[in-house]
């Protein structure tokens, strides 16, 4: 059941998801509308971090269904701010599974960026420009 109320519902309480979608659209716009190839790679990076932000927000229990007052998954012991003072065995962790998945995604994204930049350098050697329209123009002149 979706809570449509403005204050505590899906609009304010889930603002991390909205910001994530906004960043995703900013990156997507840069990938489509910008003519410079390096700008497209920057848009790709923004898109990727938006998806990582979404997954990390899923793992964070404040936004999820586990309630407030979570700690890092590596922290062991007491939770002094829990209801009724110090609780010995009541530690609520952030979900570590999305963290591990996104750790892999960051490294894969860095490798993807490196391959894209190598291709950009090769295209600059071939065409003398990294603007998309000028490259298409030169290809038309060459009759490719």
């Amino acid at each position: 059941m979706i809570d449509w109320s403005f204050g505590g519902g899906i609009f304010i309480a889930k603002y991390n998801y909205w910001i994530s979608i906004l960043l995703m659209l900013i990156g997507f716009y840069a990938m489509i509308a910008k003519g410079n190839l390096l700008k497209k790679v920057i848009g790709l990076n923004i898109f990727q971090t938006a998806i990582i932000l979404f997954f990390v927000s899923l793992g964070d229990a404040t936004l999820g269904s586990w309630g407030k007052g979570v700690t890092e998954p590596i922290v062991k012991g007491t939770l002094p701010w829990a209801a009724g003072g110090i609780v010995e065995h009541g530690v609520v962790y952030a979900n570590p599974l999305p963290h591990v998945l996104m750790l892999t995604a960051i490294v894969v994204g860095a490798a993807t960026t490196a391959v894209a930049l190598a291709l950009i350098i090769r295209m600059y050697e071939e065409y003398g420009t990294i603007e998309e329209e000028e490259i298409i123009e030169k290809e038309r002149e060459l009759g490719v």
């Binding site: 990076n45 971090t49 990582i52 793992g59 964070d60 700690t71 890092e72 860095a110």
Partner: peptide
């Protein structure tokens, strides 16, 4: 957001390595 491992990997790889790659390109 209590995701320390993702945070320092992003700082090292995202802000460090990718910036260096892009300046080299």
């Amino acid at each position: 957001m209590h995701s320390v491992d993702v945070g320092f990997t992003e700082a090292a790889v995202g802000a460090g390595a990718i910036t260096a790659f892009m300046i080299a390109a």
